[in-house]
Design a protein around this nucleic acid. Structure first.
Lengths: 141, 141
DNA sequence: CAGAATCCAAGCGGATACTG
DNA sequence: CAGTATCCGCTTGGATTCTG
C-alpha cells in the first residue's frame, strides 16, 4: 500500500474497502472520507432519499424534508450538486421555478442508501425504545 | 405500536419509508431521525465498518479508524453501544483489556452499510476529481 | 491500556432580513 | 418563488491532562 495520497485501487464491488478492512486501516487521507461526510451530512441523506422518488421543486423539497432550514437546504443542495449527485434545472419564468433531481450517479447512490434508510426506519422505534429502558447515557453532555 | 408521535407501520423491507416517500413527507419527529444521526455521525459509520470485519480492542480500533480522537471514539462507542449496535467486553486483567464487537443488530446494520461504503470508496476519486476539474467549482461553503 | 475530565477553537446550523 | 446575506448561539470535536 502506498502511504502518501490516495490509498485505493480501481476495483469493482468495493474491493478497495475489503482491502482496507483486511489491513485494519481506514486511512484519513482517503477521498472517500470527503464524499462520506457529504453523503452522511445531517440533511444529505434525507435530501437524496426525498429526491429518489422523483424530482422536486425547492419549496416542495423544503416541505418534504421537514425541519431543514433554507440555509442548510441550499448548502446541502450545492454540495450534492457539486459532487454530481443532484441536477439543478432553472426555468426562467416570471415566478421563478427551480427543479432538483438526482443524476444517474445520484440514483446509483440512492440505490445503496434506500435499503439502509428502510432498515433504519424499520428498526428505529425498537432501538430508541431500547435506549430509553436500558441505558441512560445522556446524548447532550 | 403507537401511532401518535411516530408515523410508521411495523412493516418489513422499509415499507414505512416507501409510505413516507409516497406522501412526500419525511417527518421531523420520526425516531429514525435519531438513529440516522447516530449512524451517520462523523465516526459512526467508520467504527461500524471497522468492526464489521471482526471485534477489536480499544487501541486497535483507535489506530484503525485513523484520525479519530479518544474523546470522539469513546463518545461514538457509547452511543453505538446504547443503541445496541456494539457490544463492550471488559476483561479485569492487570493491563486493562476492553474488546468491542458488533451485536447481531450491529451486523445487520453493517450488512446495509458495507455496500454503501464500498460504493463510496469505489467512486470517491472520480467524484472528488469531478468537483475539482469538471462540473462546478466553489467547493468549500 | 482504557478511559474520564477539562478547556477551547471552529463551524454547523437556525432566525431573520433582504433581493431578483 | 427561490434563493442570498448576515448575525449569533450552541454543539461538535480536538488537544491535553489525569486516573484506575
Amino acid at each position: 500500500m502506498d502511504r502518501g495520497a490516495a490509498p485505493h485501487t480501481s476495483a469493482p464491488g468495493g474491493a478497495a474497502l475489503q482491502q482496507m478492512l483486511a489491513t485494519h486501516h481506514l486511512p484519513a487521507a482517503c477521498p472517500s472520507r470527503v464524499v462520506l461526510d457529504h453523503v452522511t451530512s445531517r440533511w444529505g441523506v434525507l435530501v437524496i432519499v426525498a429526491l429518489s422518488h422523483g424530482g422536486m421543486r425547492w419549496g416542495e423539497l423544503r416541505r418534504t424534508v421537514e425541519g431543514v432550514s433554507e440555509k442548510m437546504l441550499a448548502q446541502t443542495l450545492r454540495t450534492l450538486e457539486a459532487d454530481g449527485f443532484v441536477d439543478r434545472t432553472v426555468a426562467a419564468t416570471v415566478p421563478p421555478r427551480v427543479d432538483y433531481a438526482l443524476t444517474p450517479l445520484g440514483h446509483d447512490l440512492a440505490a445503496h442508501l434506500l435499503p439502509l434508510m428502510g432498515w433504519i426506519v424499520d428498526h428505529a422505534d425498537a432501538i430508541v425504545a431500547g435506549r430509553a429502558t436500558g441505558t441512560r447515557p445522556g446524548t447532550a453532555p
